[in-house]
């Protein structure tokens, strides 16, 4: 009985530890999701199975880092969607904590900036923990492996959030270049300062 209790405790402890480290690593299979877009349509990752991959970016309205990258995210989509790697933006924040990130204001922002890519709302916050996003903006570059999407790169868009003209390393573009050459990205994980994902 005591041993059983101990095993149970160890099991609980182990599951807590696993939970804390949840989220994808490069090479993991990315789960499908179905979320509402700012135009009211439901969009799934599986809708993209005719593409070579997808640039999934957790981002939002309020975060200054996200705002600083908006134009660069639009440029990424315009350059790489025709090459088979479109952007899918997802707002992971709970609007009850961050009212600027409500669905209504997402719609407004998408219209103001004329986003050429879907801007989805992670309603119920089920998708971002599965991916392991911790901040906005946070990029998960996926490649299509035929019957599933595999995580090829996790991290920042580039190495300079303050000034697009001063960027020296274009992390996402470099990873895409490697993928297009049939190679795994040489740099497949980077870090950047960002806003925490807002939860209750």
């Amino acid at each position: 009985m005591k041993i059983n209790t101990l095993i149970l405790l160890i099991g609980m402890l182990a599951s807590t530890v696993t939970f804390a480290q949840d989220g994808y690593e490069v090479g993991d299979k990315a789960m499908n999701f179905t979320l509402e877009n700012v135009d009211g349509r439901m969009i799934s990752l599986s809708d993209y199975d005719d593409q070579k991959g997808a640039i999934v970016i957790f981002t939002c309205n309020h975060c200054p880092y996200s705002v600083a990258y908006e134009d660069r995210i639009i440029a990424l989509h315009q350059k790489y969607a025709p090459q088979g790697y479109p952007v899918i933006a997802i707002n992971p924040n709970d609007p009850a904590v961050q009212p600027e990130d409500s669905f209504e204001l997402m719609v407004k922002r998408a219209q103001e900036k004329d986003f050429p890519f879907p801007y989805l709302f992670d309603k119920g916050q089920k998708v971002y923990p599965e991916y392991g996003a911790t901040r906005t903006p946070h990029v998960f570059l996926l490649m299509n492996r035929g019957d599933y999407f595999e995580v090829a790169y996790i991290g920042a868009i580039d190495d300079n959030y303050q000034n697009a003209d001063a960027v020296e390393q274009h992390f996402v573009e470099d990873a895409l270049a490697d993928l297009k050459n049939g190679k795994n990205p040489q740099t497949n994980f980077t870090k950047a300062i960002g806003c925490t994902i807002k939860t209750r």
Binding site: T134, R135, A156, T190, K191, A192, G194, C195, T196
Partner: peptide, 19 residues
């Protein structure tokens, strides 16, 4: 702005989110 280089130097445990 080169946060990819210094975040790990502050702590490898830091993903980059603040606070």
């Amino acid at each position: 702005p080169r946060s990819n280089e210094w975040i790990d130097k502050v702590s490898p445990q830091w993903s980059g989110a603040i606070p």
